[in-house]
Each structure stands twice: as structure tokens, then as C-alpha cells.
Design a protein around this nucleic acid. Structure first.
Length: 613
DNA sequence: GGCTGCGAGACTCG
DNA sequence: TCACGAGTCTCGCAGCC
């Protein structure tokens, strides 16, 4: 392959109206900040030729970008990238946004082929192409316009091209072409959109929250030191004037363990004991605190831990992520999990804390809609349980969802032999509401003690721990659950058998998870994957369809800004909410139109994320 | 004594 | 041993200068 071509005329000859791979290089710092992204170079390859265009310190930068814009807008057959959302984002930042929808992301392709592996370009090039890549740092030491960097940059495009040849074939061999081309590739643009859009932060509310949480943290810590007889002093910060508590003994886990002994408090819960299991200590986590609740020190510590974590992990960290336009742009990682779910980083938008009963700090209110807009949150109600019904084909579960029965109450009814007539558990039955209230405890245990844990493959031990009953009672409850829904037991056994014979399982979208059937845990993971994996692809389908509607109705002003597993959050122009909501509902509920039962969504609207929930 | 890297444990979410 | 899937923070320890 000739790698010496790098004039614009050559690019036109070699890359116009064909497939080619492309790598867009951003700033020297590999910036995570969208507003600071700047394309410093771009490399191309198509199996015949490869080239690199340097834009770093290039006086013709604007002209070249304009040319690239026209090149990308022409009828390219397909565009091959490694980690497409990132390259698309860099191109978009330079105004190159309407590229062909026919993309091939080698990173996502490899994730479908081998979900247990790493997916970095250099790793894959070494593994599949037998080359020895150099690092970006090494290649860029002499500058981005040095021949050494040229070779590095060209290699990225060449290897991406070569990998795509291998992975494309493999995707067809595995019969994953529909999942890859019809679901995963359109979804790359949704990821790009979300990472570009970001979420607007109300910095005043964030500061307000910081002041309140800091005060609560301060008060609770003094209370804890007093209760534990630990010395401390209060010192003002010379710059901010805010007071700080100084003590030789911080409220660390080790100190808490000592205090528990002093107060004569015992907990049955222990830590795992390190890698070899030898260093087992009394756990000072949530389990122990719940067990010892009622003690003055423990109750204050429970509150302290909540506010300490809220401050340390969220409130004080969030300002680092806010860009100059007031928005936070998380990275969504399409290949970050083994089940096909997304993961989110810097910051992780999938773990923003909910408001707690013990402490009134509403963190989600800091995410807000810009002027003239609202935030709209759509989430699937009981998504995983509905998928359980679909995967297991259990007639009782299917009937329950088709006819609007309260499944948690149904499970409570079976496990506790409540003897409620079936028709009264239908949510439209006149007596349903009273029943729901009367048996709220049993319903709660049905939901959190059985329905959800069964999806994870829980044992009697787990149910007992969760619900506070004995292990034998828990086993009895589990047996009753499976008698009520015999299809679920059959499906679990079927999955386990398939895993033992094939060393992998596949979800309904043909997504695959490979596991060692010799490990006991694998059988739980396999069944859970059928549910979690399908749920993940359902949200992808919903986003893809939503993106089409967004393009058809620019006046609605919809921007997708967050995906939290079974939930999509978007901005929308206020005056169009009424018109758009039923369309959005329809898209979400029919993301996978051929399923035997309907999915249902709950929609919330508010001026901030807390209000939209 | 101080810095760095790493694993464990604890916490957050669906 | 015991419930699936993630990311991030702090602490404590080991190794090094």
C-alpha cells in the first residue's frame, strides 16, 4: 500500500465515492472537553492507498477543512472508523456533520465478536494484524507535522481498514449483521449527538447545594467526634473563610471499627478479607449500619456517610466537568460492558444520586433545561420483568402483562398464599387500589425480594438476607415463585443447558455472551444476559427511531442528552411538548414492534431533571 | 518522610 | 459461596527515591 500520498488531488482520486477508513486526530492532549476539541489531522486508507493530512500549524487549515467537508458530503459508499462516536464528534466540531449514514465502527464490531476482550485499536492491530504499534506519546514527541507522526497517523487508518475486512466477515459468520448494521451503526450517531449536546448545569443551584451539604457534613462530623470522644479543633480556611474540622483521627473505616468495639456494637457482616480472604474485618458498610440502627452514633454515621459521599463524589467533582457553555458532556462507552449495556464516564451520568429519605439533598435538580425548553424523561416501566416474560414465554407472566395485572402483587400473593382472586389484581379492577394498600408489605417483598432478584439468579440465602426471613422460609418462597411461573424455571434450565453445550448464549437480537459453563456463576450471568442484553438493544432501537423523528421535526427542538439504561432524557421546546409526547411514547413502546407483549413507558416533564422524574 | 501505583472496600445507579 | 451489570472515590499498603 502506498502511504506517500498526501495531496488533496490524490485524496479526491483515491477516496471519492468509495469505502474508506478515516481517523480524525484531535488536540495533542487528547482533549475530553468538547468545546476545546480541534482537529489537528486526519488520515485515510482504502486498501489501495493511505494518507495523512496534517492540520497542525498548517496555514491552509481552513481551506483543507472546507475541502474535507465537500469530500465527506459526496456519495461516499461507507465510512470506517475505530470508535466512531469520537471521530464523528471531532469531524462535527469542524462543521463536517452530514457524513454518510453508512458507517462501520471496528470497535463496536469487535465488541460483538468478542465481548470479553479489550477493544483498543493498538491492541487489536497487534492481535489480528501482527504489528507492533507505538504509543501516541512516543509518535508525537517530534511534533504532529514530523514524518514519525505521519507514519503513526497513517497506520491508524490502515489498521482500521484491515481490521474492518476481518471483522465484517466475522460479523456475517456469526449472523450478527442485522444487529450490527441496523441497530449498532445508526446508534453511533445517537452517541455522537449526546456527547455533543451535553447537559446544562445550574451552577447557582450546585453552589447552593454545596453550601448546605458542607454545613450538614460539618455538623454531623462534630456530633460523631463528640459521641466517640475524639479530639478535634475548628480552623477557618484563610482563603474562603469556611471552617474546617481538624483531627488526628479521621472518620475512616478503621476508626469506625474501633468505635464500634468501644460502644460494644457487634455486626455479623464481615469484609471479603482481601485477595486471599485472610484479612476478614467487621464490615462498616450499609449492611452493618442497618443492622445496628438505633444507636445514636450509628444513626449519625449513616447520615454522615451519605452526605460525605454526595459531597466528595458528586457535588465537589461536578464543577471540574462543566465546560465554558455551562454544560457537562459525559462519554458514553458502547463497548464498556459484557452485556451490551452502555457505560458512562467523566462524569458517570448513570449514577447521579436520588434524593434520600434520611437527607433532603436533591442533586438531580442541578441538571436543567435551557430557557424556553423543558426536560423530558421517558423510561420503560418494568422493562426487565416484561423481558423476563418474553424470554421465558411463561403463560402466567405473558397473560399478566397483556392484561394489566400487578405483577408484584401477584408474586406476593403466590409466595404468601394471600388467596387474592386473580381478577382483583388487575390494575383496572375497582377493588385493586384497596388491595394494593392492604398488602403493600407483601407486594414490596414480592417485588424486591423475589421478582427482581430472580432475574439475577438469587438463592435462598440471598432472599433470606434481603427479606429478613429464614433460609428455609426463603427457599419455600422461591419454590412457590417457580410454581406460579413454571416457564421461568424452564427457561433458566434451558439457558443453562444451552450454555453447557455451546459455551455461549444469545439474546433475541443475536447478541452473544460467552461464558465458562464450569463456573457456577456463569449460569446466572447467562440468564441475566438474555434480559439485560435485550433491554440494552431495545433502548438503542428506541434512540435510533427517536433520532429520525428529531430530524423530521426540527421545530420540536429535541436534543437527546442522557441515557440511563432504561431511560432517555431529552430537551424539548416547551410549546411542542403536547404534540411530541404521544409520538415519543409510540416510538419508545414500539422500539421492537414484533415482541409478544407491549412495552410501556412513563413520561415526565420538568424544568430540571428532578422535576422530570 | 513523601510520592506513586494498586487493590480493597464502600458507595452510587439501573 | 451465596444477586446481574457498571464507575468513582478514599484509604492503606508496598515499593521507591
Amino acid at each position: 500500500m502506498d502511504t506517500q500520498l498526501y495531496t488533496l488531488a490524490d485524496i479526491t482520486d483515491y477516496f471519492d465515492r468509495r469505502d474508506f477508513s478515516v481517523c480524525a486526530f484531535d488536540t495533542e492532549t487528547n482533549s475530553l472537553v468538547y468545546r476545546k476539541l480541534r482537529m489537528e489531522g486526519c488520515s485515510f486508507a482504502n486498501g489501495e492507498a493511505a494518507c495523512y493530512i496534517n492540520l497542525h500549524n498548517n496555514p491552509q487549515r481552513l481551506g483543507i477543512i472546507d475541502f474535507l467537508h465537500h469530500l465527506f458530503r459526496r456519495k461516499i459508499k461507507s465510512l470506517i472508523m475505530h470508535n466512531a462516536p469520537f471521530d464523528l464528534k471531532v469531524l462535527h466540531k469542524e462543521g463536517i456533520w452530514n457524513v454518510t449514514p453508512k458507517v462501520f465502527c471496528t470497535m463496536t464490531a469487535h465488541h460483538l465478536i468478542n465481548e470479553n476482550s479489550q477493544h483498543g485499536l493498538k491492541f487489536l492491530a497487534a492481535k489480528y494484524l501482527g504489528v507492533t504499534p507505538v504509543s501516541y506519546e512516543e509518535a508525537s514527541t517530534c511534533g504532529l507535522d514530523h514524518p514519525m507522526f505521519l507514519e503513526y497517523a497513517v497506520n491508524d487508518a490502515k489498521w482500521t481498514w484491515d481490521l474492518h475486512k476481518i471483522f465484517n466477515k466475522k460479523i456475517y459468520e456469526l449472523n450478527m449483521q442485522r444487529l450490527f448494521f441496523e441497530v449498532e451503526m445508526p446508534f453511533q450517531f445517537c452517541l455522537m449527538d449526546m456527547e455533543i449536546n451535553g447537559v446544562l448545569i445550574n451552577e447557582e443551584k450546585l453552589e447552593d447545594l454545596r453550601i448546605k451539604a458542607t454545613q450538614t457534613h460539618f455538623d454531623l462530623l462534630i456530633q460523631l467526634y463528640k459521641l466517640a470522644n475524639i479530639g478535634y479543633s475548628i480552623q477557618p480556611d484563610m482563603f474562603t473563610g469556611e471552617c474546617e474540622i481538624v483531627s488526628k483521627r479521621g472518620m475512616t473505616d478503621a476508626v469506625v471499627r474501633e468505635i464500634l468495639i468501644k460502644r460494644g456494637l457487634k455486626s455479623p457482616y464481615l469484609t471479603k478479607g482481601g485477595a486471599d480472604g485472610a484479612k476478614k474485618l467487621v464490615s462498616v458498610g450499609a449492611e452493618t449500619l442497618t443492622h445496628l440502627a438505633g444507636d445514636e452514633f450509628i444513626d449519625a454515621l449513616t447520615k454522615f456517610k451519605i452526605v460525605d459521599h454526595l459531597l466528595g463524589s458528586f457535588i465537589l467533582k461536578m464543577p471540574d466537568h462543566i465546560e465554558d457553555d455551562g454544560r457537562v458532556r459525559s462519554t458514553y462507552w458502547n463497548t464498556g460492558t459484557k452485556t451490551g449495556r452502555l457505560s458512562s464516564r467523566n462524569p458517570n451520568m448513570q449514577q447521579n444520586p436520588k434524593e434520600r429519605v434520611q437527607l433532603p439533598f436533591d442533586f438531580k435538580q442541578i441538571f436543567e433545561a435551557p430557557k424556553g425548553k423543558k426536560l423530558l424523561s421517558v423510561d420503560y416501566s418494568g422493562q426487565e420483568l416484561r423481558i423476563l416474560a418474553i424470554v421465558s414465554q411463561d403463560p402466567t407472566l405473558l397473560h399478566a402483562f397483556k392484561n394489566g395485572y400487578d405483577l408484584h402483587l401477584m408474586t406476593g400473593n403466590s409466595v404468601f398464599d394471600l388467596g387474592i382472586p386473580k381478577e382483583e389484581m388487575c390494575t383496572t379492577h375497582p377493588g385493586y387500589k384497596k388491595l394494593k394498600e392492604k398488602y403493600s408489605d407483601e407486594r414490596h417483598i414480592g417485588k424486591n425480594g423475589y421478582n427482581f432478584p430472580i432475574i439475577y439468579g438469587t438463592t435462598a440465602y440471598g432472599v433470606a438476607k434481603n427479606t429478613g426471613v429464614s433460609e428455609s422460609e426463603a427457599q419455600e418462597g422461591i419454590d412457590k415463585f417457580f410454581s406460579a411461573y413454571p416457564g421461568v424455571r424452564k427457561a433458566i434450565n434451558r439457558t443453562s443447558q444451552f450454555l453447557s453445550e455451546n459455551w455461549h448464549v444469545r439474546s433475541l437480537t443475536r447478541r452473544r455472551r460467552r461464558l465458562d459453563p464450569g463456573e457456577k456463576k456463569s449460569h446466572r450471568q447467562a440468564f441475566n444476559f438474555l434480559i439485560q442484553g435485550l433491554a440494552a438493544d431495545m433502548i438503542r432501537c428506541a434512540c435510533n427511531n427517536l433520532r429520525r423523528i428529531i430530524a423530521e421535526h426540527p421545530e420540536w427542538g429535541i436534543k437527546m442528552i442522557m441515557i440511563i439504561h432504561d431511560e432517555i432524557v431529552m430537551e424539548i421546546n416547551e410549546e411542542w411538548i403536547e404534540k411530541a409526547t404521544p409520538v415519543i411514547r409510540d416510538i419508545m413502546e414500539n422500539a421492537m414492534p414484533k415482541l409478544p407483549i407491549k412495552m410501556e413507558v412513563e413520561i415526565g416533564v420538568g424544568s430540571n431533571y428532578s422535576g422530570a422524574k
